[in-house]
Write a protein that binds this DNA or RNA. Sequence first.
DNA 1: CGGGTGAGCGAAAGCGGTTTCGCATATCAC
DNA 2: GTGATATGCGAAACCGCTTTCGCTCACCCG
Lengths: 332, 332
Amino acid sequence: MADQVITLSDVAAAAGVSLSTASKALNGTDRISDATREHVRVTADRLGFRHNALARSFARGRSQTIGVLTHRASNPFTRVVLATAATELGAKEQAILLYDARMEEQHDVNESILQLRARRIDGVIVIGTSTSFRTPSFTSRFDVPVINAFTVPEDPRDTTITADDHAIGRLAISHLLSNGRRRIAHLTAEPHDMAAQRRAEGAEQLLAEAGLEWAAPVRFGRWREEWGEQAATDLLTEVPDVDAIFCGSDAIGRGVERVIRASGRQVPGDVALIGVDNWESLMHDQRGTRHLTTIDVGLEEIGRRVANRLLEGDLEPGVEYVEPHVVMADTV
Amino acid sequence: MADQVITLSDVAAAAGVSLSTASKALNGTDRISDATREHVRVTADRLGFRHNALARSFARGRSQTIGVLTHRASNPFTRVVLATAATELGAKEQAILLYDARMEEQHDVNESILQLRARRIDGVIVIGTSTSFRTPSFTSRFDVPVINAFTVPEDPRDTTITADDHAIGRLAISHLLSNGRRRIAHLTAEPHDMAAQRRAEGAEQLLAEAGLEWAAPVRFGRWREEWGEQAATDLLTEVPDVDAIFCGSDAIGRGVERVIRASGRQVPGDVALIGVDNWESLMHDQRGTRHLTTIDVGLEEIGRRVANRLLEGDLEPGVEYVEPHVVMADTV
DNA sequence: CGGGTGAGCGAAAGCGGTTTCGCATATCAC
DNA sequence: GTGATATGCGAAACCGCTTTCGCTCACCCG
């Protein structure tokens, strides 16, 4: 059913105007009388004309394509940002060209950059793995706009949109306090992990503002379920009357919960739990009941904003933080 | 540092040949002497020449872009398929243009198809939400190859790559049997859900082949953690000596596990648990310890194959199933 | 009434490749 | 030695649109 495709000159001929007039009429560029413009538009519609996007891109020198550099696209967080950005871009007729794991090896990087240039991409999105690691700066290596997502920028002149770990810590404590908890502990990941650190700092800050202290020193360990179990076991021995635990991630939270329950305590009756990541949303995107109360760091929002900022073109240097939000469930 | 870009005619001039000769030499098309070909190649390299991908696409009428239609890109399963397919395609210089949620409303569908045609996309990937729902067939609506992923095809002439629910059921039971379990129960989702049904059938079939029966009738409910709790509670009352539970999903498995432990039973000592989905891989992509033993349905493999089949171009009608595999952890 | 101004439109030059076609030369069979 | 066939290369058309530039004509002002 492809028939032969209608080109702009078909439209021009049918409308009795020149090719250039037809082009300008449809694009709204240059001076064209309203009458002519309208006439061309109607004719184009009648014929079912569509611009050949390829020809157009070629003539304009812009590809309607955004290059995306990921450290590792299989990372679950990266996937969320990637999928939302791609959705947002697709809605605006922008394709994406994904280069995964090409940011390391010098040779690959250079090669990738050359390829992206040859494609005449309109912009670049660099997606980091988390706010724990910096991603090398690519801003100066392209002559098109570059925006970073979910990472800590290496160069202060970079434009970055990322999660607000400090606010996450504050929000977690704020939520627990508003639920009347006072003997709060924090079990989290590696002490040298930037995200873990900043969350702990934010939390401690809000705690101090409320005139409180941790029920026990913050325990740093790993981002894993089993660490949650181990840390919670120790914690219960040390502070049996703890009434809330801020878990550095949902994975840790799962381990913690198991130990709390095994100790005969009720969740959230005796001990409230709050995690970070909104892990369950990675399983159930439908609305509906959830289990672990958690904080959503705003990955989807990051993806959306990154796409839109890039298209709007107003890239100011600096870091823009996305506000986290609490996802209510059964454990607080 | 963009300088002025090197074009093919620059190369031709520098090599002392005509534009057409340079083109053919670099593309390996048409008859060109080895000496000339080599000379042109060397010259191109020396000058740092790269084809302008836009011009090339335009001239060839092929865009190096694959259209992707998703029912809902925010679905976690969809995201996995999408991200792996995009990675695979990116490695082969193919961009993707994502049209999310445009498969429903008739108007949107038609419009989207027209847009994709205008883009001269080279192929289409349609990603379904699960093997529970059919996705409308788009094969005949494009004049480029169309391939379906993670769905049950509506039209037998469609090409589809998807998960093998029957094999998943068999694999779960097989794994439990090989661990010496004999009193096995199955707690799963909606009875009219195709995926749930086929998993149950596969499981029951293997059980029968082993001369066994379910320790209790299969309980159908919902794909949720809370349903797992409820179903497990009932199950323990009915069959206190059950020694293994095949959970229809990891979410259900989580609920089940909590109840089993709360009853004082050991996991996996008294009761072994196996789920489906490899939920934890959505959190930790790193290797490392996991908690719930589960079956990976092969979403990444689906994404990879879909991308490669499309590029290879050998699309045979019919359904190709991806083999599931067990992901070992602590609960079996 | 003449010269200046600006609005509306068309001719044509790209954009940077691919591809068809034809020509000249070399190769071959008889 | 002659006609048929192959080989290597270049000229030029073409892909479909954007954009510059210049022309024409109507209008306004002095």
